[in-house]
């Protein structure tokens, strides 16, 4: 390296100059600011996620190929066994559907409605989870359906067993889903048995959620099922979320320590359902404006 007394390298060899760094750093900060404040970068993000899709497909291809091979070379016995299991499951579902119908009719009578309400779910599409890891310590997945299929931000995502999350960002052909077990996610829930309403928060672990806002004396016990309460304006009411696995009551503490286990197989299911709900159904997610408590009456 040639130096001329000043101790600085010859300028032509320097790729990283202060002004250039300042430029890129300022650019990054402006981007962050725009992304954080207002949604001015929605279009840029939309385009970028389209550009990312080929890489996501490439990453997904080995596992997709493996499943294709396994599916094609499935043995006869396995297929028969699977068929039998599915037939059993179907029978059980049919029985439950029969009961649901009679319950719905009864409910309609009780509410003095002329006809039973249709199901709150209007339509749904099945999306496949791409084998992409977003962030290790957060719980997010990417699915292969996007805005081109009508997917929108805040849409509820269900899987076998119950709720698994909501759409966080919809790209053109893919969507990012935040799971209910993400530490940044919280679901408004209701205890099915007692009607107690609270919030279930993720912990960054697929197997456990916490209910941090329950007083020590609240009516909750192990094996209680939590369903969505319909408050908060995102999820409709009545979808199963989790089962309480552990209730810790310390008389010295104001709040109980409650853990619940998500009912949906979050880390095992490769197929999820993106659901559209009827906006005029009683169980549809309450719009935030209707959740706000009525203003106190003016005192005389």
């Amino acid at each position: 390296m040639v130096t001329f007394g000043s101790g600085r390298p010859v300028p032509s060899r320097v790729a990283a100059t202060g002004p250039r760094f300042t430029f890129y750093a300022a650019l990054a900060i402006v981007l962050m600011f725009l992304d954080q404040r207002g949604n001015w970068l929605e279009y840029a993000r939309y385009g970028l996620s389209a550009a990312a899709y080929p890489v996501q497909l490439a990453v997904n291809s080995p596992s997709a190929a493996w499943r294709w091979v396994r599916g094609n070379f499935a043995t006869r016995e396995r297929l028969t066994a699977e068929n039998t299991a599915l037939r059993e499951a179907n029978k059980a579902l049919e029985l439950r559907a029969l009961r649901t119908e009679s319950l719905e009719a009864e409910n309609a009578q009780l509410r003095e409605l002329t006809a039973a309400m249709p199901d709150v779910a209007e339509r749904w599409i099945v999306a496949e989870v791409l084998a992409i890891e977003l962030t290790t310590l957060r719980q997010r997945v990417v699915v292969n359906k996007g805005a081109a299929d009508g997917v929108f931000k805040g849409q509820s995502v269900l899987a076998r067993g119950g709720l698994i999350g909501q759409v966080m960002r919809a790209g053109p052909w893919s969507a990012e889903i935040i799971l209910i077990s993400d530490p940044e996610h919280a679901v408004p829930v209701q205890v099915l048995r007692s009607g107690l309403r609270t919030i279930a928060v993720g912990q960054g672990n697929t197997g456990v959620m916490t209910l941090p806002y329950l007083p020590v004396n609240s009516d909750i016990k192990v094996d209680d099922v939590l369903v969505t309460s319909g408050l908060g304006g995102v999820f409709p009411a009545g979808y199963p979320v989790a089962r309480v696995i552990d209730v810790g009551r310390d008389p010295g503490q104001p709040l109980a320590l409650v853990h619940a286990e998500p009912l949906a197989a979050i880390d095992r299911d490769r197929e999820v359902m993106l659901v559209w709900f009827r906006a005029d159904h009683p169980a549809a997610p309450a719009a935030p404006s209707t959740v706000v408590p009525a203003p106190p009456e003016a005192s005389p």
């Binding site: 760094f21 650019l27 990054a28 900060i29 962050m32 996620s49 992409i132 960002r169």
Partner: peptide, 29 residues
């Protein structure tokens, strides 16, 4: 140059669903 770290950081932002510019700034620095 510094464009390469910046672009790689932006790619990480897109893939990880982070705030755009987050990894770009860290990587550029």
């Amino acid at each position: 140059g510094l464009l390469f770290p910046f672009a790689c950081g932006l790619a990480l932002d897109v893939f990880r669903g982070a705030v755009l510019g987050e990894h770009a700034l860290a990587l550029t620095l």
